[in-house]
């Protein structure tokens, strides 16, 4: 009994100190199960495809991870991504590719700015604030659509190459994703801004006493989140190649799940982006696995939900034990 609890505790402590290890193990186990069920499926092509679909999810999950570190969330991220993609695609025939990309990113950053203003200055809860701006932005997009319906839309070749192309078997999207991921992971540990995210999520009063003006951080954070969402949208439309009014929306809740599975606490102050990347990969592999099981759609979803719940609660349990 006691030895069991001590073992449980030491496992917990190990995980507490190396939070990525169990996620990596889970990922490998899932891949193993997949290979066992359908021998030969795990090949270079499959790996490339999995990474290709995991990247937009991981990028959108970056918005959730960064905001969650402060105890927030960004439910407008998917809409911001969709708007960027849609505006860009419809502007290409009018203003050309480079300018269209810039114009596309503007609404995403503006959504972030409004979020930041609401959260930082008006002290609206991020969940409500981003939900509200997300709805408003969706409405604006529908209005915008009526004006550009005649001009049609074009996906620039460069984005299609980035979204679907491969080089030496690896998806080209990595060219965009790897630098972004490195930048985020570096920033969260080695920059003042990153540290302040953890500080605000951990204890806002303590941060205030230490002289942190939280509104500056929140405003910058939500604008950054909007920008990342916008870039995600551009990449995703290059992958899907058909801009629509709900393009990235199906990725919203998985992006929250990826961050949570990756070990970022929704209460703030704990977690990081490397876990989120693994979380996005786990979710993508899990999706493939459940598709292969040839079950009715409803049952698949139930299983998906149950697995996410089990994984996150076990993980949180284990890491909490160490304290």
């Amino acid at each position: 009994m006691t030895s069991e609890t001590t073992m449980f505790k030491s496992v917990g402590r190990f995980i507490g100190n190396n939070p990525l290890v169990p996620l990596l193990i889970l990922l490998l186990v899932l891949v193993g199960v997949l290979e066992f069920m359908r021998p030969g499926i795990v090949n270079e092509r499959w790996i490339g495809n999995t990474i290709k679909f995991a990247i937009p999810l991981a990028m959108l999950a970056a918005c959730q991870t960064l905001t969650m570190l402060t105890g927030g969330i960004d439910l407008s991220a998917a809409v911001a991504a969709t708007i960027s993609a849609f505006v860009m695609a419809t502007q290409v025939p009018i203003v050309g590719v480079p300018l269209a990309i810039c114009i596309g990113l503007i609404p995403a950053i503006m959504i972030g700015m409004v979020n930041g203003f609401g959260v930082a200055v008006c002290r609206v809860h991020p969940l409500i604030m981003t939900l509200g701006t997300g709805l408003i932005a969706t409405g604006c997009l529908q209005v915008y659509q009526r004006f550009v319906i005649a001009s049609g839309s074009v996906i620039p070749d460069g984005l299609a190459w980035l979204g679907t192309g491969r080089t030496w078997g690896l998806p080209n999207a990595l060219i965009l994703f790897v630098p972004i991921a490195i930048l985020i992971i570096w920033a969260q540990r080695r920059t003042g801004f990153g540290r302040l995210l953890y500080a605000l999520g951990s204890n806002e009063t303590a941060s205030r006493i230490s002289g942190v003006r939280s509104w500056q951080v929140f405003l910058a954070l939500y604008m950054l989140s909007g920008l990342i969402a916008g870039v995600t949208g551009l990449l995703y439309v290059g992958l899907i190649k058909a801009p629509s009014l709900s393009l990235v929306n199906p990725l919203l809740l998985p992006s929250v799940a990826a961050a949570v599975i990756g070990g970022t606490s929704i209460f703030g102050g704990r977690g990081g982006y490397s876990g989120t990347i693994l979380g996005a990969l786990i979710l993508t592999v899990l999706g493939t696995l459940l598709t292969l099981l040839q079950m009715p759609e409803g049952l698949r979803r139930i299983l998906f939900g149950l697995i996410i719940l089990t994984v996150t609660t076990t993980y949180i349990r284990l890491t909490e034990q160490s304290r």
Binding site: A199, A206, S210, G211, R213, Q216
Partner: peptide
């Protein structure tokens, strides 16, 4: 923490 609080210290 206090040494990073100011906006000017947000960088590396």
């Amino acid at each position: 923490l206090p040494q990073l609080a100011r906006f000017a210290k947000w960088g590396a």
